[in-house]
């Protein structure tokens, strides 16, 4: 199976472990990741202070480059930016016309229908992962955390993480804060509030008997690691999946002793 894939800027830097685990996981599941040719940055949080056209254009260029039914996106913020822009361009003919004009520079054309923007969580949940589970693997209980952008304003399947992880043998502990906020960009402002937000999430997972927290978003993971308290493991859900498939921790961006 082949799928078109938008890596996003974090894949080249601090979320390298997420992307490493995605690549490893894909090859062991027999999924061919076709990286979107000449993709560009989605503008992250910074587009919010630029004129609307900037964010729309950055997203639209990627969408126009994506010639296919689906576009797989791993980073939650990229997912949000691409999805928000796609929805807005579908709704507002005025924006659409102006963006089409900008895309002409490169001879690109935007399609209204495709691609469908597919979050990594949903993509992995729809595969039959149970048959790849390593024989004799016994998973310890984990809690899951989706964060904001997979939950709002364009909600994705909020059972996807549970489905994927339990398919490979992890008991998933139910939590109430799985769609709550980790504090996002607050550290940039030196606000002390973020500690509370992160520690609360870790506390709940810990109290409910989880041995670790499986997350999907690079920003959430960093915030939770830095502000959530030192002793509770926070890993990408793809890393948990890889371990259950018997893949070497170092291929998943984890320390060797895991």
């Amino acid at each position: 199976m082949k799928i078109l894939y938008y890596p996003g800027c974090s894949s080249e830097h601090l979320a390298r472990d997420l992307y490493l685990s995605i690549e490893t996981l894909a090859s062991s599941l027999g999924v061919e990741l076709e990286v979107l040719s000449d993709w560009n940055c989605c503008g992250a949080r910074e587009i919010e202070e630029a004129p609307e056209g900037v964010g729309l254009f950055l997203a639209a260029r990627n969408l126009a480059l994506a010639q296919g039914e689906e576009l797989l996106v791993a980073c939650s913020l990229c997912f949000h930016n691409l999805k928000r822009a796609q929805d807005l361009l579908r709704k507002e003919a005025g924006f659409r016309a102006r963006i089409a004009e900008l895309l002409k520079e490169e001879g690109l054309e935007l399609s209204l229908k495709t691609p469908q923007i597919l979050p990594l969580t949903e993509f992995l949940a729809r595969l039959d992962l149970s048959k790849f589970r390593s024989a004799g693997f016994r998973g310890l209980p984990v809690a899951v955390y989706y964060g904001c952008f997979l939950s709002r304003p364009c909600p994705t399947d909020l059972e996807a993480l549970e489905k994927a992880l339990s398919a490979v043998g992890y008991p998933v502990v139910p939590t109430t804060l799985k769609s709550h906020c980790c504090g996002g960009h607050l550290p940039r402002t030196d606000s002390p509030v973020i500690k509370n937000l992160c520690q609360r999430l870790i506390f709940e997972a810990h109290q409910k008997g989880a041995t670790g927290l499986a997350v999907a978003c690079p920003v959430c993971k960093l915030n939770l690691e830095i502000y959530g308290g030192p002793s509770f493991p926070v890993r990408y859900f793809t890393q948990y999946l890889g371990l259950a498939l018997g893949l070497s921790p170092s291929w998943l961006g984890l320390p060797e002793e895991e």
Partner: peptide, 10 residues
């Protein structure tokens, strides 16, 4: 392309 500033803000 830029840097994952969303993530490195800390």
């Amino acid at each position: 392309r830029s840097f994952d500033f969303g993530a490195v803000h800390a």
